[in-house]
Design a binder for these strands. Structure first.
Lengths: 368, 368
DNA sequence: AGTGTTTTTGTGAACGCTCACATTTTTTAC
DNA sequence: GTAAAAAATGTGAGCGTTCACAAAAACACT
C-alpha cells in the first residue's frame, strides 16, 4: 500500500471550493447530481433515486417528469458514490498476462463480454512476469478499487495462502490454472488435449515423438509436457527428444533447429505446445529441407484461426477459450452473490483437429 | 442510462445493519477503515489519512506506529470513497474492438502498462460491432464509472458531436483513428506504410499490383486502400484488381481465390492490408500452385511476430503499436491534468520490412 | 518565564448516493 | 363520508475519504 502520488497541479475541486459562496454554488460544468435533478422537477432526491434504479413505487406521471429532467440535465449516476453507499462496485478485476497472445486475449474478451452482459465492468491488470510480489501488488490494487470479485489468470499455486490473504473477503476464481486447492476455477483439460494429439501420432505409427514445450513455469506448459510424456510411456514407448520454448514462433524455430542439429533426426513427429511454436517448427523444418508431413509429422495446440493456413495446414488441438472465460465469470458471479458454487475445478474438453501436418510414418524409424 | 438491475439476494449490508447495536458494531469481516486504524493507535483519522497519502507533516514516531497498525489491520484505502471526495478516479477507460487481433491487443496492453506506471487503472469496454448506439452506451457506462479520461479505439468520425456530448467534461483521445477534428490522438501513418510497400513493389518492376483490403468501415482499412490506389496512380500506372477482406486469414484466402478465379492472373503482386490476410493469400496461392515470390510477390502489413515465419517469410510493414498506446496515454494524462496539449494528431512512422515474399518481376506482365 | 514560530494533530463539513423508516397522499371498502 | 389499506413521496443518517481550517504541542529565542 504505497503512498499515492500527489497530483502536482492544484486540484480543481479545491479551487472551486475556495471561490464558493455560502449559498452553495455549484462548480462550473460539474456533472448534475440527484439533487440537481430533484430541484429541477420539484421532488425529493429519493424519488429521483427511485426512478434511476427502476423502483416500481413511483407514480407514472412523476417518473415521466423525472426522466425528462434526467435527459435534459444529462444526469449520470456517480458510481463512486453508489459504491460507497452500497458496498458493491459492479466491477470485476482480472489479472492476466500475455494479452498479445491469442489464447489469453480471447479469454479476456470473453470475460469482459460476459461480465458486461451481467451488468459488471472489467478492470484489467496486466502482470507480465508473474512473480509473487507483482501478483500480490496487482491484487491489492484491484481490491482497493473495491472489485466485487477477481479472476486470476496467472499462475499462483505457490502463493495460495498469500493470495487468499490479500484478497481479503473478495471472492476469486482461476482461469486456465489447475490449482488443486478447492479454489473454484475453469480450465480446459490440456493434459487430455495433448494426450489426444500424442495418441493420434502413435496411431499413425510414430515411434519416436519429440516435444517442444512452453516455459515450465506456466502450468499450461507443464500439463502439456506431462501429457506428452505420460501418454508415450503408457503406450510402452520411450519419449523422444524434448526442448523448451517460450511460446513464441521464434522459440519454436530455434527449438526445432536444435532438435535437428545432431545429425539426421531419429524422431518422426513433434508435439508442439502451441500453434505458434509449431509454426516456427514448420519453418525450421522447411529451412532444413525436411518435408512435413512426409518425413516429420507435427501437431500444435490452441487452434489459432491461422493454423489452418499454415504450410501445411496444422493438425492441432482446439481449445475453447471463449467458453473458459464465460464459465469462469458465471462462477465468480455466483460467488459474489453468495450462491452455492462447486469449488472444484470445471474442466472443459479440448478436441483434436486433424489437418495436413500429420501422416502415417513412411520410412522405418531409425531407433527402437 | 438504464435502471441498474437490483441484486436479488438480500444485501449483507442491510442485514448487518439490522442487527447492529446502537454502539456501532462493525459488520463481520468488513474491511478496516481509516477510523479503525485511528482508534487502534489513538490518533485521529486525519493523521492516518496523512500517512496513507505520504504527507510529510506527520512525526516519524507516529508514522511508524500508524504504519504498523495499517499492516496489522490489513487496511486498504477505499478508492470509491476517495473518488467521491476528490472527484478524481485515477481510472482511464478504453473502448476498443477486436482485442483478439494482434494490433488492438498490443495497443491495449501498452495502454494498460503505461497507465499503471502513472498510477492509473484501466477499465476496458469492448464494442464489437461499433455502431453509434453501442459506442455511446459504452461511453456513458465508462463515464458513470467516473473515469478521468477515455481512449477511444474505434471509429467514430460520423458521430463526433454525439461522442463529445456523451463524454461530458471527460477528456478523450483517439488511437488508431484519423479524426480530422482537432481531437487529439495518435496514429501510425498507415497511408505512408502502404505507400512504402507499394513503392517497393513498383521499384521491383511490378506493373500490375492487386490489393486485398480490410473492411471499408475501418479507417485503417480505408487509409491502406487509398495508399495503394494513390501510389500506383502517382507512378502513372493503373491499379490492379482489388478485393475486400475482413482482416481474417480466411478472408485473405477467399479474396485471393477470387482474384485467381478469372484465369491466369494479370497481376504480379499483391498488397494485403494486414499480415493475416497476406497469410491467407500465401496459402491460396500455394493451393493454386502459384509460387511466391517467383510468380507473384506479396506484402503484408503489421509485422506480426509470426510473419517472418510464414512460407516464405513475409515482406511487410512494421507498425509500432506499443508506441501508439504509450503516446496516447501520455497525451490523455496531460489533458486530464489540464496541461497544454497539441490537439493535432500525432503521427508515427511505420517501416518497411523486406523479407522473402517479394522479388523482381521475372516474366513479362501480360497487361499494360 | 514569556513570546513567537514551526511542527504536529484534530475538527467539521462535504462528496453523491442508498438505506430504513416516517410521512403524506391517494385509493379502496364499508 | 369515514376508516383502513395501499401507493407515493420525503427525511435523516451513514458509507469512507479528503479538504480547509482550527487547535495543540514542541521548539526557539530573547
Amino acid at each position: 500500500m504505497k503512498p499515492r502520488p500527489r497530483p502536482s497541479r492544484p486540484r480543481p475541486a479545491s479551487r472551486d471550493r475556495a471561490l464558493a459562496l455560502p449559498g452553495r454554488v455549484r462548480a462550473h460544468s460539474q456533472n448534475a447530481t440527484l439533487n440537481d435533478v430533484a430541484a429541477r422537477c420539484g421532488v425529493s432526491y429519493q424519488t429521483i433515486s427511485r426512478v434511476v434504479n427502476g423502483s416500481p413505487l413511483v407514480a407514472e406521471k412523476t417518473r415521466a417528469r423525472v426522466l425528462k429532467a434526467i435527459a435534459d440535465l444529462n444526469y449520470r449516476p456517480n458510481l463512486a458514490a453508489r459504491r460507497l453507499a452500497t458496498r458493491r462496485s459492479s466491477l470485476i478485476g482480472m489479472i492476466g498476462s500475455h494479452m498479445t497472445y491469442y489464447g489469453p486475449a480471447q479469454v479476456m474478451v470473453s470475460i469482459e463480454e460476459t461480465a458486461k452482459r451481467q451488468g459488471y465492468n472489467l478492470i484489467f491488470s496486466g502482470v507480465e512476469n508473474p512473480g509473487e510480489t507483482e501478483l500480490l501488488a496487482a491484487i491489492d490494487d484491484l481490491c482497493e478499487q473495491q472489485v466485487d470479485g477477481l479472476v486470476i489468470g496467472v499462475r499462483f499455486e505457490d502463493w495460495i495462502a498469500a493470495v487468499r490473504k490479500h484478497c481479503g473477503g473478495v471472492p476469486f476464481v482461476t482461469v486456465g490454472n489447475r490449482i488443486d486447492d478447492d479454489i473454484p476455477g475453469v480450465v480446459v483439460d490440456e493434459f487430455h488435449g495433448v494426450r489426444l494429439a500424442t495418441r493420434h501420432l502413435l496411431e499413425l505409427g510414430h515411434q519416436n515423438i519429440a516435444c517442444i514445450s512452453g516455459p515450465p513455469d506456466w502450468p499450461a506448459a507443464k500439463a502439456r509436457y506431462r501429457a506428452w510424456h505420460t501418454t508415450i510411456k503408457k503406450a510402452g514407448r520411450q519419449p523422444g527428444p524434448y526442448v523448451q520454448g517460450n511460446w513464441s514462433t521464434q522459440s519454436g524455430y530455434d527449438a526445432t533447429t536444435q532438435l535437428l542439429s545432431s545429425g539426421p533426426p531419429a524422431f518422426t513427429a513433434i508435439v508442439a505446445s502451441n500453434d505458434h511454436m509449431a509454426l516456427g517448427a514448420l519453418r525450421a523444418l522447411h529451412a532444413n529441407k525436411v518435408r512435413v508431413p512426409h518425413q516429420i509429422s507435427i501437431v500444435g495446440y490452441d487452434d489459432v484461426p491461422e493454423s489452418r493456413f499454415f504450410e501445411p495446414p496444422l493438425t492441432t488441438v482446439h481449445h475453447d477459450f471463449v467458453a473458459e472465460g464465460e464459465r469462469c465469470v458465471k462462477t465468480l458471479l455466483r460467488m459474489i452473490n453468495r450462491e452455492a458454487v462447486d469449488t472444484t475445478l470445471q474442466v472443459l474438453s479440448p478436441e483434436l483437429v486433424v489437418r495436413e501436418s500429420t501422416a502415417k510414418v513412411k520410412r522405418r524409424p531409425k531407433s527402437t
